[in-house]
Amino acid sequence: MSSGLYGSEQLSELVRGESVLDGAFECLRRIWSRPDALNGQTLTDSEYRTRLLEHHLAAQEPKLYDELNASMGDHPVMNLDSGCGVIMDALSLREGFQLLNDLPDEHGWVVTLEWAGVERLPSETTFMCREWFDAHSPSAVNRDDYRFVGDLDVPQLPASDPSFVWTRHPDRRLEESFKGNYSSEAMIDIYSDTKGLLEDIVAESVHDEFLVTSDHGYVNVQDTNPYVLSDSNEDALSSKFSGRHREVADDYALDQLHDAGVIERAGGHYVVKGHYHPTKPGATKHIRHGGLSLPECMTPVLRITT
């Protein structure tokens, strides 16, 4: 069973499903729906299994990234015709599966979870906000049916139908907490605050139906990683990328990385595939986004009826 990455049910979905991504979603459910998935050593194991799963699927299913690219665009949050659409910056399937476990038990709400591809690449907030709201950042959107929530305090929300809310969390806390090797907060604490923020939004809203999703997910590149770079590709990636995407340029090192399958072109940008990342001396950021990977580009779509 490929080192326990999937069981018989997930294997059946991978083999018989219309898309390998639906099978991948069920494999991720198996990893991240555990009650302790965000805790300590279990979190470390879950992250490694996520990287190993994508590495394995990419080797077994060459169409994986083609299907992931094809899933992008026409995100369900922009097709919302009633209720409240809540966009939580960098909310990933990791948190999505935990919310699916917790919210019905704690509140009696009806909650379902699906996934949708990001609107486009690079998987970066700036690009999504331009596509969805024609603004350069979520805080710059000026519409009567929209509110931006920059912290954990919820302002008065729009009463329009539909209405939209964009929160800076959990991404703000992820960015603050995973700078280098000096994390001061546990992932479970970040999740707890994010869940609390969502509960407050539901309580303050006039709606009883919510679509909760994100602009993108993220990759966690700390600890062990099955994505190994050759020395020459390591040097090329370190010298040409400060994050997980960059603008296209005529450059031998970029051509080398593309030919090696480390990066892929997306319009006017190159994006890093999978969980490749350069190893640099000293502390580096563990939480990253902007590339082409399952955790970044398969966004959670929670539908809540209160």
Rank of each mutant, 00 (worst) to 15 (best):
I190G: 08
P62K: 12
D250T: 12
H269Y: 15
P162Y: 06
E185G: 13
H169T: 09
R173T: 04
Y252V: 05
L14S: 04
V77A: 03
R168K: 15
H169F: 09
Q156L: 14
S238P: 04
A135C: 05
L53R: 03
S230Q: 08
L52Q: 04
A203P: 08
P104C: 08
A249D: 15
R244K: 13
D66C: 06
H75A: 12
D151N: 01
R120N: 15
P295V: 04
A59V: 12
S293R: 14
E54H: 05
R94E: 10
S239Y: 03
F210E: 11
I31K: 02
G196P: 01
T306M: 13
L113G: 04
R265D: 11
D259W: 12
G196D: 03
L198Y: 14
L68M: 09
P278S: 10
I190A: 06
Y191W: 05
A283L: 04
D223K: 09
N142C: 02
G267P: 03
G23L: 00
H55I: 08
Y146V: 01
E199G: 11
G96Q: 11
R265K: 15
P226R: 00
V141Y: 04
T279E: 08
R246D: 04
H56N: 10
I304S: 04
N39I: 11
F133V: 04
I287A: 13
V110F: 11
L21H: 05
H277K: 08
V219C: 02
D161I: 00
G40P: 01
I31Q: 02
L99F: 01
G261R: 12
Q98A: 07
L80A: 02
L254A: 04
S192V: 07
D250R: 15
F127Q: 05
S3D: 15
V165K: 03
S19G: 07
E119A: 11
T126D: 07
G108H: 13
T299A: 03
I263V: 03
L80K: 13
S123R: 12
T112C: 10
K195A: 01
N69Q: 11
I31H: 02
V77P: 00
D153L: 12
E296I: 12
I263G: 01
V272M: 13
L292W: 14
E296T: 08
H275V: 06
S19Y: 07
M298L: 15
M72N: 12
C84K: 00
V228W: 08
H75M: 07
E209N: 09
V221H: 02
H136G: 02
S232D: 05
E106N: 15
D200H: 10
M187E: 06
D200N: 15
V118K: 02
P170I: 01
P295E: 02
D22E: 15
Q98L: 11
S232V: 06
D259G: 12
